[in-house]
């Protein structure tokens, strides 16, 4: 069992130019990335508006990796 607070991974706002590079790397338009709502507590904390990309630094039993979520209007 892990406490809820410990389940929040580090969120990081990605710059627009960096986001374009990531979209190219995955060969997927940003709109098709997993989504996060603008009203999400973590997105609010970063002050992310719709259309931005958030990098999530996850760490779990399978290893460390970066996951991306595209900010959408709620």
């Amino acid at each position: 069992m892990a406490y809820n607070y410990e389940l929040i991974p580090e969120h990081e706002l990605v710059s627009a130019s960096e986001a374009a590079k990531i979209a190219k790397k995955f060969r997927t338009p940003l709109e098709k990335f997993p989504k996060i709502l603008e009203s999400d507590p973590q997105a609010k904390k970063l002050g992310a508006s719709a259309g931005r990309l958030i990098a999530i630094h996850r760490e779990d039993p399978t290893g460390k990796y970066v996951y991306y979520r595209y900010v959408v209007k709620s």
């Binding site: 069992m1 809820n4 929040i8």
Partner: peptide, 21 residues
């Protein structure tokens, strides 16, 4: 150090990533 098993509440309070975890 609070733990709740209510997934929707965790989403509202901590966000979608915490709910996913």
């Amino acid at each position: 150090h609070v733990y709740s098993n209510d997934i929707f509440e965790v989403m509202r309070v901590y966000g979608i990533e915490a709910a996913r975890n």
